[in-house]
């Protein structure tokens, strides 16, 4: 692919100026441009329209475009900031920014809370937690007795729901994560620090002077 095609494709709807995206996220302009290379790859795997469709997201995560997964669905929905069923470039960069090693911890905590608040009630409820545990067991082909699932959920809830009202609010979540930092491990992607090395071809397509 030559520079002409790359530059023409940048005019497609959904493309946003890397300098604007860099200003709003922990990424530099070069890193945003490198992310554009990744975005182009993901968004053209099934339909070449510079939009990541759910099936393309599933294909990238599972090597299978039909594999449904509760958590992948939640991530997709959170990335889809405009809630129009596809992930645009700007949404991709802004959402991945939360996973940058230098992103504020508070953003990671809030993202994880919204991820687990399946029904968007502003709370993580016991039923939601149980549903997620069952989804994980199903995904992993693990069989655990319902009694044991109840025990795990009860124990976690008694640790996290410090006010004892049967639901975890954002404040309780923050305290719980502070006591269990491993819960945020998957909210940081070390790859994002080296993104320009992973996708060096952006240098050929770069339009902007780097600010750093």
């Amino acid at each position: 692919m030559g520079c002409y095609i790359s530059k023409r494709s940048k005019k497609l709807p959904g493309y946003e100026d890397p300098t604007v995206l860099a200003a709003e996220t922990p990424f530099t302009v070069s890193e945003v441009e490198a992310l554009y290379e990744l975005f182009k790859k993901l968004s053209s795997s099934i339909i070449n329209d510079e939009l990541i469709h759910k099936e393309e997201f599933q294909l990238a995560l599972f090597r299978n475009s039909n594999k449904r997964n509760l958590f992948a669905d939640r991530i997709f929905d959170l990335f889809d900031l405009k809630r129009n069923g596809v992930i645009e470039f700007g949404e991709f960069v802004r959402s991945l920014g939360v996973f940058h090693p230098n992103a504020p911890q508070a953003d990671k905590i809030s993202f994880a809370f919204r991820l687990y608040d399946l029904r968007h009630t502003g709370y993580i409820e016991r039923e939601e937690l149980k549903e997620m545990v069952l989804a994980l067991l199903h995904e992993s082909d693990l069989t655990i007795s319902d009694d044991f699932v109840e025990t795990i959920v009860d124990k976690t809830f008694s640790d996290a729901d410090s006010k004892g009202d049967g639901r975890i609010d954002p404040e309780e979540w923050k305290d719980f994560v502070a006591r269990n930092p491993a819960l945020l491990k998957n909210m940081t992607l070390p790859y994002l620090k080296d993104i320009t090395l992973a996708f060096p071809s952006f240098i050929m397509n770069s339009e902007a002077e780097d600010s750093e």
């Binding site: 990744l38 993901l42 990238a60 995560l61 599972f62 997964n69 509760l70 958590f71 992948a72 669905d73 939640r74 991530i75 991945l96 996973f99 991820l115 687990y116 937690l129 997620m132 545990v133 989804a135 994980l136 995904e139 992993s140 025990t151 795990i152 959920v153 124990k155 976690t156 809830f157 640790d159 996290a160 719980f176 269990n180 491993a182 819960l183 491990k185 998957n186 992607l189 790859y191 993104i195 992973a198």
Partner: peptide, 25 residues
């Protein structure tokens, strides 16, 4: 005594939450 597994820790191992896969060639 083994520590009881934290439900959120269990959930966080989901393949669907491993976005690192997006960066694999």
């Amino acid at each position: 005594r083994p520590t009881m597994m934290n439900a959120f820790e269990l959930i966080s191992t989901s393949q669907g939450l491993n976005l690192g896969t997006l960066f694999e060639k």
